[in-house]
Amino acid sequence: MGEQPVAGTPGAAVGADPIGGPADVTSRALLRGKVGAYVALTKPRIIELLLITTIPAMFAAQRGVPPLGLVLVTLLGGALAAGSANALNCVVDADIDAIMRRTRTRPLARHTVTPRAALVFGVVLGIAATVVLAAFTTWQAAVLADVAILFYVFVYSMWLKRRTSQNIVWGGLAGCMPVIIGWSAVTGGIGWPAWVFFGVIFFWTPPHTWALAMRYREDYAAAGVPMLPVVATERVVIRQMVLYSWAMVVCSLLLVPASSWIYAAVAAPVGLAFLGAVHRLHVRVLRAPVRQDRTPPGEFMTVFHLSNLYLTAVSVAWAVDAAFGLGVVGWPW
Rank of each mutant, 00 (worst) to 15 (best):
M1R: 09
E3G: 08
Q4H: 12
V6W: 04
A7V: 15
A7E: 15
G8A: 03
G8M: 05
G8Q: 09
T9D: 10
P10H: 02
P10T: 02
V14P: 00
G15V: 04
G15F: 09
D17C: 02
P18L: 13
I19S: 13
I19E: 15
A23V: 04
V25N: 07
V25T: 12
T26G: 15
T26Y: 15
T26R: 15
S27N: 11
R32M: 14
G36S: 13
G36E: 11
V39N: 09
P44A: 12
R45F: 14
I46T: 11
I47W: 04
G64T: 02
L68W: 14
G69R: 08
L72P: 04
T74G: 07
L75T: 07
L76R: 01
G77M: 09
A81R: 00
S84G: 09
A87E: 08
L88W: 06
L88V: 09
V92D: 08
D95E: 15
D97T: 07
A98Q: 13
I99V: 15
R101H: 13
R102C: 12
R102D: 07
P107E: 09
R110T: 14
H111I: 08
T114I: 10
R116M: 14
A118W: 11
A118T: 02
F121W: 15
F121N: 10
F121S: 10
G122H: 01
G122F: 07
V123F: 13
L125D: 12
A128R: 02
V131C: 11
A135M: 13
A141P: 11
A142C: 10
A142S: 13
L144T: 08
D146T: 05
F151K: 00
F151G: 01
Y152R: 00
F154Q: 06
V155G: 10
W159G: 02
W159A: 11
I168D: 03
G171L: 03
G172Q: 07
V179R: 00
I180T: 14
G182K: 01
S184P: 13
G191A: 03
W192R: 04
A194P: 11
W195V: 15
F197N: 03
V200G: 01
V200W: 02
W204M: 07
H208S: 06
T209C: 14
L212A: 07
L212W: 01
A213S: 14
M214S: 07
Y216L: 12
Y216S: 08
R217I: 01
A222M: 06
G224T: 07
L228Q: 08
V231M: 08
T233D: 15
Q240A: 12
Y244S: 01
S245Q: 06
M248P: 04
C251G: 03
S252Q: 01
S252L: 01
L254D: 02
P257K: 05
S260N: 07
A268F: 12
A268N: 01
P269Q: 05
A273E: 04
G276Y: 09
H279P: 04
R280S: 13
L281T: 06
R284T: 14
A288T: 10
V290Q: 14
D293H: 12
R294M: 12
T295Q: 02
P297V: 08
G298F: 06
G298P: 06
T302Y: 11
V303R: 03
F304V: 10
N308L: 15
V316M: 01
A317D: 00
W318C: 01
V320M: 00
D321R: 02
F324N: 00
G325E: 05
L326K: 03
L326H: 06
G327L: 03
G327E: 12
V328P: 00
G330S: 05
P332N: 11
P332A: 07
W333L: 06
